[in-house]
């Protein structure tokens, strides 16, 4: 149970970072922390105590296997996470070239 709670705490740490940090790169890092916490949560979902890798052994039908589906989901989600992170970093680099700063307080053309 403690692992699930830590997962949620990690999510909140990421959310806190996104809300309070003023450096664009730190915001991107906080988003990554949130992302990782969700991946951890998925990995935990598939874990079964004492389970082995899900390669079915016909000789031993009573064996306990871990759930393979969340692992597949996490792999897919990591690939998507890679795309979002690289997209975000590309935009941050472009923003730095235009504004010459990473400070979000100075990047405020749009309002109202």
């Amino acid at each position: 149970m403690i692992a699930y709670i830590m997962c949620f705490v990690l999510f909140l740490v990421g959310l806190y970072g996104v809300i309070t940090k003023r450096n664009l790169v730190k915001i991107a890092v906080s988003l990554s922390i949130m992302e990782i916490s969700v991946f951890l949560f998925f990995a935990l979902l598939g874990y079964i105590d004492g389970g082995v890798a899900p390669i079915v052994d016909p000789a031993d039908p009573a064996r306990v296997y871990v759930d393979p589906l969340p692992q597949a989901l996490v792999l897919t989600a990591i690939v998507i996470g890679l795309a979002t992170t690289s997209m975000l970093m590309a935009i941050i680099i472009r923003l730095y070239r235009k504004y010459g700063t990473f400070d979000i307080r100075e990047i405020k053309n749009l309002r109202g």
Partner: peptide, 11 residues
């Protein structure tokens, strides 16, 4: 400038 800022916020 505007497009990048909007895209960052959206992301």
């Amino acid at each position: 400038k505007n497009e990048l800022e909007a895209s960052f916020k959206y992301q």
